[in-house]
Design a protein around this nucleic acid. Structure first.
Length: 302
DNA sequence: ATCCAGGTTATGT
DNA sequence: ACATAACATGGA
């Protein structure tokens, strides 16, 4: 068994019949991560576990202080799938240290000490954030649920319900946009979503090429996709390509940035330049903190 | 009823 | 290069 991996990582593993507990972690709060708007393929269950999907796999997970508790998976999958997804090799203490010079971020970090940026796949992140434009998180989640049930792959029955994965590109490419709109309530994003699948299947878009591109080139390349403008491109870069300096500016981030910093009347482009200059290589993490903070403190934004 | 939601696109100056 | 309307849909 691959116990070496966890020993090297400096954590303790406790295997019970139904659960695997990873102990000795820091800076991780599953609830904060799930509710932070970076990922929408999850359900909270009655026992406090979050049923999450990634790469066609599924597990139930929750965190308590320095522990992660897993169900519906095994040690090998944790090592290969969930550990990297949760980016547990990255020291978020160092990232927080680098951003502590800013009093607003300091306050935001005190409210969300367990925040992390998940390492999603390019396909997952792209699909989710093409869905996100002028949408809301609640409806997006509902659409993904319906999309998975209607077009996804059956994964099994968990917590008393049949579970399905998000359809992959091959399936997505074959969906009739009108059907997608009716079944999943995606509105006018129907065509962009299906086109994304087609662009992959037909080779108009290469994830390999995207991954090999530097930030500037990737930013432009992503915007060639239907339904991808500057904001969604930055989201895809941050969440799907692990570009931590990406700084997506949505309505919330725009409001909190113009409220906290001298940016009144500035364009998104100007705010972006300011943010990258001020927050540097971890601007994306700063953005995630500010997004959470803005939504939790609507009174502080004009 | 009007406005808003993790915006983008097409069109006009 | 910047400003504005249209775009689906559900909740406040």
């Amino acid at each position: 068994m691959g116990g070496d991996f966890f020993q090297r990582a400096g954590v303790d593993v406790i295997s019970k019949r139904e659960e695997i507990i990873i102990q000795g972690l820091s800076h991780i709060d599953i609830r904060v991560i799930m509710e932070s708007g970076q990922f929408h393929l999850w359900e909270e269950e009655e026992d406090g576990f979050f049923l999450v999907e990634h790469e066609g796999k599924l597990c139930a997970i929750k965190s308590e202080e320095d522990r992660l508790i897993f169900q519906l998976t095994d040690l090998e999958e944790i090592e290969k799938i969930w550990w990297p997804w949760l980016d547990l090799d990255t020291d978020y203490g160092k990232i927080q240290e680098a951003l502590r010079f800013d009093p607003h971020l300091q306050e935001a970090m005190e409210e969300s000490p367990g925040l992390r940026i998940l390492r999603q796949s390019p396909y997952e992140a792209s699909s989710q954030f093409i869905m996100s434009s002028n949408n809301n998180m609640k409806r997006m989640k509902k659409s993904f649920r319906a999309m998975s049930q209607e077009y996804g792959t059956y994964l099994g029955e968990y917590y008393g319900q049949d579970r399905y994965s998000l359809p992959g590109s091959a399936k997505l490419a074959k969906i009739d946009p009108q059907d997608l709109r009716e079944k999943a309530g995606v509105g006018y994003r129907d065509r962009a979503l299906v086109q994304w699948g087609k662009d992959l299947v037909e080779g108009n878009f290469s994830i390999d090429k995207a991954e090999a591109s530097d930030d500037d080139a990737l930013f432009l390349y992503l915007q060639e996709l239907r339904g991808v403008g500057p904001k969604v491109a930055q989201c895809i870069m941050l969440y799907g390509y692990y570009r931590m300096s990406a700084f997506p500016i949505d309505t919330w981030v725009k409001k909190i940035m113009t409220s906290l910093y001298p940016l009144e009347g500035k364009s998104n482009k100007e705010i972006s330049v300011y943010a990258k200059e001020r927050f540097g290589p971890f601007a994306g993490f700063a953005q995630q903190l500010l997004f959470i903070y803005a939504r939790a403190h609507p009174e502080e934004i004009s």
